[in-house]
Design a binder for these strands. Structure first.
Length: 486
RNA sequence: GGUCUCGUGGCCGAGCGGUUAGGCACCGGUCUGCAAAACCGUCUACUCCGGUUCGAAUCCGGACGAGACCUCCA
C-alpha cells in the first residue's frame, strides 16, 4: 500500500511534485551527514531528525527504503584563500590526538545522540576515509570525460568546460557569468583556471594529518567528491532523493550534480530536499552569538540558555511542530509550550486503552485517520499532522467524558493509527514510565495514608502530605478514579 | 555588492484565493473539601502602501524589516 498521493517539494524545480520513485515501491535516499571534527550541535540534529521523519514516513507508507547517510571523516581541504585547511586535522592537533582518534570519539557521541533522539539507523553509514579508492576512480572518470584538469599535484573541476554541455547552477539558480561578480574578491587561486573551479583532489600540505596516495601524487580528496563516490557506490548513478541542510545547497550539492554529470552523465537524484536551519532565540545557532549548545546539554539542563532540562521527546516534538523547510526558533517559551502539549498528547493516547466502547460511533474515525495521511502526503507536513492529532486528542477526551462515542472496532482503528503516526512516523515515544521501582510501593503507602485522612475530612494531614510531596518534587493529582503522582 | 527566502494574534507555528490550523499562555466553565492537575469552551492575527479579483494572510508591484547563501557550515 504505497502512498501514491505523496507530494514533495523538489529544490531542483522549486515546487511540489508527485513522488515517483525510479523503481516501483523502492526508494533510494542519500543525506549528507555530519563532519566529525567536533560534536554535532543541536542545529545538526534538527536536520537529521527531519530526515529521520521523512525516512520514517516513507517506510510507514510501505516503501522499501535504502537510506544512506555518510560520515565525513576526511578533512575539507580548501578555504577561500586557497590555503590548505584540514579542519579535522586542526582540531586533532589542538587536542593532541590523531585525526582518526578524534573522529572516532565524536562518532561514538553521534551514535549515542541518535539513540537518545530516537533516530532510526540509516541502512548504511559510510565514511569518507573508507572510500578513498572510489573517490579517486570517480575523479579519473571526470578527467577522462574532459571535465577536470591536473595542476601541480591537484585536480580541479573545469566548470567552464562543464558548462558547454551541462548547466552549472541548475540547483542553486546561480549563473556563471553572474557568479563572478557575486563572489567577493579572492586571492591566491592561481592554480585554478577559472574562479568557480573547485578541487577534486588537493596536493598534500606539510601540515596535513591525513594523506593518501593517488595517481596525481600524495594528497587528499576535495570536499564534494566523497558524496558523489559513496552515493554512486551504494545507490547507483541515479537514485530518488538527495537531502541535506539548506546551507549545503551551494556549493556542495551544486558541485555534486556537476561531478555526477561529469563522471556519469546524469544528475544523481530526481528529488533534492533541503531542511531549514535552527535558530535559537531568534538567531542562527552560532558560537559567536552565544546561542550554541549540544544536543545532550538541553537534556541535561547544562546549557545556560534554558532554565531547565527538556526531554529528548519534547525537543523532538517541538521540532516536529515546525515544517522541515521552515526555520525554527527554539526558545524557553517554545520548549515549555511543547512540553505541555506533548504531555497532553501523551495522556490522551494512554487513555485510549481505558475507553468504554459504545454500540455506535458518533463521528467518522476514517475521516480523522485520513487527515493524518493527507497532512504527511503534502510534503511531510508534520505540523499539520500534529494539529490533526490534537483533534483526535479532543475526541478521545470527549469520549472519556461520555460526550462522544466510538465502537470497539473504531477505538482499535483509531489507536493503531494514532500510535502509528506518533511513534513510527514522528518518532516520539509514548508512555515511557519514569517511576522508580523502590519509590512506587512507598508512594502507594503514602497516598493510602492521605486517602484515609481525606475520608476522615482531616484536611490538615492530607494537605501536609500533599505539600510535603510537592516540596520533594512529586506532584499528585486527585481524580475520580483515585490519586496519581509524578 | 550579488542571488534568494521570509514577515501570521502575548509566544511557537500551519495555511498560500472564499471554509476553525494546532500547541502554550490568558479568560470562562466542569470536576474537587480546597488547591493543583485534568477536561470542555471562548477570545486576541495575518508588517505597511498600492494593484488584480465578486472576494486576498494567500496573486502582482513598491516600501520597511528580518534571515540565508555567495567563504567551512546541518
Amino acid at each position: 500500500m504505497h502512498s501514491s498521493k505523496l507530494q514533495l517539494y523538489n529544490s531542483l524545480s522549486g515546487k511540489k511534485e508527485p513522488f515517483q520513485p525510479l523503481h516501483e515501491g523502492r526508494v533510494g535516499m542519500y543525506v549528507c551527514g555530519p563532519t566529525l571534527y567536533s560534536e554535532p550541535h543541536m542545529g545538526n540534529m534538527r536536520t537529521f531528525i527531519n530526515f529521520d521523519m521523512i525516512y520514517r514516513y516513507l517506510l510507514f507508507s510501505g516503501y522499501h527504503v535504502k537510506y544512506v547517510r555518510n560520515i565525513t571523516d576526511a578533512g575539507h581541504i580548501t578555504n577561500s584563500l586557497g590555503e590548505a585547511v584540514d579542519s579535522i586535522g586542526s582540531a586533532a592537533r589542538l587536542e593532541q590526538v590523531q585525526s582518526l582518534e578524534i573522529v572516532y570519539k565524536y562518532n561514538v557521541k553521534f551514535q549515542e545522540l541518535q539513540r537518545i533522539y530516537n533516530l532510526l539507523p540509516p541502512s548504511i553509514e559510510p565514511t569518507a576515509t573508507a572510500h578513498i579508492q572510489e573517490q579517486i576512480e570517480m575523479i579519473e572518470k571526470i578527467l577522462e570525460n574532459g571535465f577536470a584538469y591536473v595542476v601541480n599535484g591537484s585536480v580541479y573541476f573545469d566548470v567552464r568546460k562543464f558548462s558547454e554541455k551541462y548547466q552549472y547552477g541548475i540547483l542553486s539558480g546561480r549563473k556563471i557569468d553572474e557568479l563572478e561578480e557575486e563572489t567577493r574578491a579572492l586571492n591566491a587561486q592561481e592554480e585554478k583556471q577559472f574562479f568557480a573551479d573547485f578541487a577534486l583532489w588537493k596536493k598534500a600540505h606539510p601540515d596535513d594529518m591525513q594523506i593518501w596516495r593517488s595517481p596525481w601524487g600524495d594528497g587528499n580528496p576535495g570536499w564534494h567528491i566523497e558524496c558523489t563516490a559513496m552515493s554512486t557506490k551504494y545507490l547507483g548513478n541515479q537514485f530518488d532523493i538527495h537531502g541535506g541542510g539548506m546551507d549545503l545547497k551551494f556549493p556542495h550539492h551544486e558541485d555534486e550534480i556537476a561531478q555526477n554529470c561529469g563522471a556519469l552523465g546524469c544528475n544523481p537524484a530526481t528529488y533534492w530536499m533541503h531542511a531549514n536551519m535552527l535558530n535559537v532565540n531568534g538567531q542562527k545557532m552560532s558560537k559567536s552569538f552565544g546561542n550554541y549548545f549540544l544536543p545532550q546539554e538541553i537534556i541535561e539542563g547544562s546549557t545556560s540558555l534554558f532554565t531547565k532540562p527538556f526531554a529528548a521527546n519534547v525537543v523532538r516534538f517541538c521540532m516536529m511542530q515546525a515544517h522541515y523547510r521552515s526555520t525554527l526558533d527554539l526558545t524557553q517559551d517554545s520548549l515549555e509550550a511543547a512540553e505541555k502539549g506533548y504531555a497532553r498528547l501523551s495522556d490522551a493516547l494512554l487513555l485510549l486503552d481505558k475507553l468504554t466502547p459504545s454500540e455506535q460511533s458518533s463521528f467518522d474515525v476514517q475521516e480523522l485517520i485520513q487527515s493524518f495521511y493527507t497532512a504527511m502526503d503534502d510534503d511531510f507536513n508534520a505540523p499539520t499532522l500534529i494539529a490533526n492529532l490534537f483533534e483526535a486528542v479532543r475526541r478521545i477526551n470527549l469520549i472519556n467524558d461520555g460526550k462522544e462515542q466510538l465502537t470497539a472496532a473504531d477505538i482499535s482503528e483509531l489507536k493503531n493509527a494514532v500510535f502509528g503516526f506518533v511513534q513510527e512516523v514522528l518518532g516520539l515515544q509514548i508512555g515511557v514510565a519514569n517511576s522508580d521501582a523502590k519509590l512506587a510501593p512507598v508512594m502507594e503507602l503514602v497516598l493510602d495514608l492521605r486517602q484515609h485522612a481525606r475520608s476522615n475530612k482531616d484536611w490538615t494531614t492530607s494537605d501536609r502530605i500533599r505539600d510535603g510531596l510537592a516540596a520533594a518534587g512529586i506532584t499528585i493529582k486527585d481524580s475520580k478514579e483515585g490519586t496519581s503522582w509524578s
